[in-house]
């Protein structure tokens, strides 16, 4: 199949970008979107031009590196897949495809289609973990956990942190990502210990990074390659409100002694 690509080209973080149109020919319908990009880049290299920079790593939909906004959808038109899993058969011959980087103030463009997603790392550093002592591996069944809660936690943990939720949201809100990270811990007994501190710290960091606010439109859920549910956002709101209302001040908690 032959395609016309309109791709955002930007030399570096400070330069002004623009769309450049490319033609690619004889693309196999069985190839993935990133393989199509590889074909384009090989032809650019052969011509002595700068290839299009884009993030990619595992190419099997679990690393969350690929991040293209394709024809108005993060990760393209297919549901519940990352760009690397998107097949070219989802497009028609002769189609024009517009490829943009994620657009959000906390995700500045570094080059072409690559954005800096370290804002997500900062949010995780603020509390997206549990504090455990090192030592022997605990017995897997020492703490009984209801199956339904374990499943919900696992569903939330499926988040690969790709940032499609931010890219899809009209407000560039990171609520789906943060709520998935809050939920995976909040649902399990091991995570409950630091739950009140965690949700407050992660939400504060999210706001500090400059993400927008959640207005419950549900675009994140519709575009998430891992189909993370916005019920996680409600859970985070619930955790956040109850932490703000009921939990002791963070200073007192750190001092200990109750």
């Amino acid at each position: 199949m032959n395609l016309t690509l309109k791709i955002w080209r930007q030399k570096n973080a400070t330069s002004k970008g623009r769309f450049v149109t490319y033609k690619v020919n004889d693309i196999s319908t069985s190839s993935s979107f990133l393989e199509m990009m590889d074909v384009l880049n090989e032809s650019l290299v052969m011509k002595g031009e700068d290839p299009v920079a884009f993030d990619h790593d595992c190419r099997e939909g679990i690393c969350g590196a690929c991040s293209m906004y394709i024809n108005g959808h993060p990760h393209g038109p297919d549901k519940a897949v990352t760009t690397c899993q998107l097949h070219m058969r989802k497009f028609s011959d002769g189609e024009t495809i517009v490829i943009e980087p994620w657009r959000a103030r906390p995700f500045p463009v570094l080059k072409d289609l690559i954005v800096d997603r370290s804002a997500f790392d900062k949010i995780i550093q603020a509390g997206g973990y549990i504090s455990v002592n090192t030592g022997g591996i605990p017995d897997a069944n020492a703490i009984p956990i209801p199956k339904v809660k374990a499943d919900l936690s696992m569903d939330a943990a499926a988040c690969i942190g790709c940032g499609a939720c931010v890219a899809a949201c009209k407000n560039a809100s990171a609520m789906l990502f943060v709520s998935a990270k809050v939920s995976q811990f909040a649902l399990l007994p091991q995570g409950r210990i630091e739950a009140a501190e965690r949700v407050q710290a992660m939400v504060a960091e999210m706001d500090k990074q400059g993400f927008g606010n959640c207005t419950n439109t549900g675009a994140c859920e519709a575009e998430c390659p891992k189909e993370i549910s916005i019920s996680n956002i409600a859970r985070m709101n619930r955790e956040f409100l109850s932490a703000k209302v009921c939990a002791p001040k963070v200073k007192e908690m750190n001092e200990g002694g109750g």
Binding site: Y69, R103, T215, G218, A222
Partner: peptide, 28 residues
């Protein structure tokens, strides 16, 4: 909230998103 939301996306997309969501929720 709206001002914060606009500030969170200084560069708009060329092709605006059209995710399958409730129509009116986008125009509150």
């Amino acid at each position: 909230l709206q001002i914060q939301n606009w500030l969170a996306r200084p560069t708009r997309y060329k092709v605006e998103g059209y995710s399958h969501t409730s129509f009116f929720s986008k125009f509150m």
